[in-house]
Amino acid sequence: MGKPASEDILVARFSDYLAAHRDIHFPHRHSFYHLAFFTAGSGSHTIDFEKFPVKPGQLYFMVPGQVHSWFFSGEIEGYVMNVSAGFFNAFLQDADYVERFPFFSGVSAEGVVQLPKAAIPVVTAQFEGMLKEIKGEQAYSQDMLRLQVLGMFIAVSRASRQGESRQELPHNYVLLRNFRKLVEQHYMQLRLPKEYAALLYVTPNYLNAFCRHMLGKSAGEIIRDRVLLEAKRLLINADMSIAAIAYQLNFADNSYFTKFFKKYAGTTPEEFRKNIS
């Protein structure tokens, strides 16, 4: 009922957040969900090494572990939210509820939402309500914040799906979410589609055909892309040697890792590190 603990949730105007985090343009990662909503300004935002142009009415949703950096031009305004994975746990019976929103898939492009014009004032008002509530001056302020944040997630999800044809069967989205979750949990140990197919109780051929239909990639490519992404994320840490990264990612040796990285990233790990520093 008091002021929410800062490690659970932070809501701020973007200009205030920028003033307190001046090194925000360097690539960095968070251990919490990170959300930015732009109402004015321009520039670019890079999430997991994929660059997006910043536009008013845009929301960026990031899951824990994603690497991102900003490059702004003009007066930037909007809102920032950091929220811990456990913030909703005291409120929701389903611990995985938040992950079901499409923008929290962990795929960069799916976490970028351009709101229709009619939805911008609605989401702006929701953030303003959170800024008032986060002061914690009234009873049940933390529970009200949980309601407001979940309400905003639902409003954004509805608005971003307007006019979108969703002919896919619901069980397809459940299977896709389960596959992605398994890859996230096991990509360092399990590298073969047949291993994931067994965990999902489907055949390897079905899993490959399903992934091609839903994502335009084979199951093997999705697993490989996740390994490559983690290698890139680890390479931003200059204190970690290439050999240590290869070991952490479960490669047999440093040279095998370097060959893998060059084949799929188009550059050596050393060159990649040099270009992002």
Rank of each mutant, 00 (worst) to 15 (best):
M1P: 10
M1I: 05
K3P: 03
I9E: 12
A12H: 05
S15G: 07
Y17R: 00
A19K: 02
A20I: 00
A20L: 00
I24N: 00
F26V: 08
F26R: 10
H28E: 13
L35K: 07
F37W: 08
F37D: 06
F37S: 07
F38S: 14
F38D: 15
G41L: 13
F49H: 13
F52E: 01
V54T: 14
Q58F: 10
M62L: 14
G65S: 04
G65L: 09
G65M: 06
G65V: 05
G65I: 09
Q66A: 04
V67A: 13
S69I: 04
F71H: 11
F72I: 04
F72L: 12
I76C: 07
M81R: 10
M81L: 13
F88M: 01
A90P: 02
F91I: 00
L92E: 07
L92M: 08
Q93F: 05
E99T: 01
P102T: 05
F104R: 02
S105L: 12
V107K: 12
S108H: 04
A109L: 11
A109R: 08
Q114R: 10
P116S: 12
A119K: 06
A119G: 05
I120W: 02
P121I: 00
T124C: 10
T124I: 01
A125F: 06
Q126A: 15
F127T: 05
F127E: 13
G129L: 09
M130D: 11
M130H: 10
E133T: 14
I134H: 08
K135Q: 11
G136L: 04
Q142I: 03
Q148M: 15
Q148G: 15
V149R: 15
G151D: 15
I154D: 15
V156I: 12
Q162D: 12
E164R: 12
S165E: 15
E168W: 12
L169T: 09
N172A: 06
Y173L: 08
L176T: 02
R177C: 00
F179G: 04
K181R: 11
Y187F: 13
M188K: 07
M188Y: 06
L190H: 03
L190P: 00
L192Y: 10
E195Q: 14
L199E: 06
L200P: 04
Y201W: 05
Y201F: 10
P204C: 08
N205I: 05
N205S: 13
N208Q: 06
F210R: 06
C211Y: 14
H213M: 14
M214I: 03
L215M: 15
G216D: 15
K217T: 06
S218V: 00
E221P: 02
R224H: 07
V227M: 09
L228G: 06
E230K: 09
L234M: 13
I236L: 12
D239G: 04
M240Y: 14
M240Q: 14
I242E: 09
I245T: 00
A246C: 01
F251A: 01
F251Q: 01
N254D: 09
N254G: 04
Y256Q: 10
Y256R: 12
F257H: 03
K259I: 05
K259T: 09
F260Y: 10
F260P: 07
K262G: 01
K263Y: 11
Y264A: 03
Y264F: 15
A265M: 08
R273D: 00
